[in-house]
């Protein structure tokens, strides 16, 4: 505690000086502990967000042009059908890939946590996270070679005598790409949740007459609900803001919110005001998701401490 709570403090003995004069007071401890992270949050999160908020409140604000007065014009612009359609598509991509990740991830996580041979378990988990260590751009690009008309998947279809399919440049490709990108997160979170599952509860349920399906739906799912919620929200948040996959795999009709924002900031219109308003909507959606995440997170800690 004698150390300076502010790493960038100008006077080297400022911290110890403060500690001497204020040490008896109760708030010093928390302030010193929270100070650096609070400052960090303030500088790198609060201020930039407020800047975006301010820019978003100037209708028609553009890079390199004099700014007008404040107003809600940028937000009203979002309500136009074309932009609502973009938002709707982003939501659909995010929801779809979340469900896909859950459907694919749960069996895998279940197997890893409860059925895989114990000595191999850590290795298997690492194997599942391994794809995360490569660039997301590369992973998305790899899917183009799999999904394109003469790609791996259609070659396989040809060998099996199935008709060639159009995969690349469709919403399906975006869903596949997003699900693949975020599946490891889902598996990891579900694995952590399922690993903590008290298998004695499953025995108790069996003892009370529940068959395996009933045990799954009445015990396993409710018991791992915080993990399921956390995994879903994380994938949802990541998929909602993803830029790379829709761009590479989505084809001609794949405009989503992050690309739209990109176009406002780095495209020829340079409509920073509108772009900021779109960003604020995205920030709000993600914050909402995080708030839900924290709520479920709290519930899980409550149940944990009670055991």
């Amino acid at each position: 505690m004698a150390e300076s709570p502010l790493p960038s403090s100008p006077a080297p003995d400022w911290g110890s000086h403060l500690a001497q004069t204020l040490a008896p007071q109760r708030w010093l401890g928390p302030v010193a502990m929270l100070g650096p992270s609070g400052l960090w949050l303030f500088l790198l999160l609060v201020i930039p967000t407020l800047l975006i908020l301010e820019i978003s409140l100037v209708p028609g604000l553009r890079l390199g042009q004099p700014a007008g007065g404040y107003g809600l014009g940028n937000y009203l612009q979002i309500l136009e059908p074309v932009y609502l359609r973009v938002m709707g598509r982003s939501l659909a991509f995010a929801l779809g890939s979340t469900l896909l990740c859950l459907g694919l991830g749960f069996p895998v996580a279940y197997w890893l946590a409860l059925m895989s041979p114990k000595p191999w378990r850590n290795l298997l988990v690492v194997a599942f996270i391994l794809p995360l260590w490569t660039s997301s751009l590369l992973r998305a690009y790899a899917w183009t070679t799999i999904l394109r008309p003469s790609g791996v998947l259609n070659t396989l279809f040809g060998v099996l005598g199935l008709p060639s399919q159009t995969w690349l440049n469709t919403p399906t490709a975006v869903l596949i790409g997003l699900a693949y990108s975020f599946l490891p997160y889902m598996v990891l979170i579900l694995y952590a949740s399922l690993e903590k599952l008290d298998t004695r509860l499953l025995e108790a349920a069996a003892d009370l007459g529940a068959n395996p399906q009933q045990r799954f739906w009445k015990i396993t799912v409710p018991q791992t609900l915080p993990g399921i919620a956390a995994g879903c929200l994380l994938v949802f948040i990541a998929a909602l803001g993803d830029f790379v996959v829709p761009t590479l795999l989505g084809g001609a009709s794949s405009m989503n919110i992050s690309r739209l924002i990109y176009n406002q900031f780095l495209g020829p219109t340079r409509a920073w005001g509108f772009g900021s308003a779109l960003s604020m909507v995205l920030i709000l959606a993600v914050s909402l998701a995080i708030a839900l995440l924290l709520k479920y997170g709290d519930r899980s800690t409550v149940t944990e401490t009670s055991q």
Binding site: G60, R62, Q65, V82, Y83, R85, V86, R89, A252, S253, S254, M255, R259, L260, N263, G267, P268, T269, A271
Partner: peptide, 18 residues
Amino acid sequence: DTASNDLFDRFWTEITSA
């Protein structure tokens, strides 16, 4: 000009989200 640019952008968004 800005207004024309905006018009281009709007139609471009329409095209890319059709």
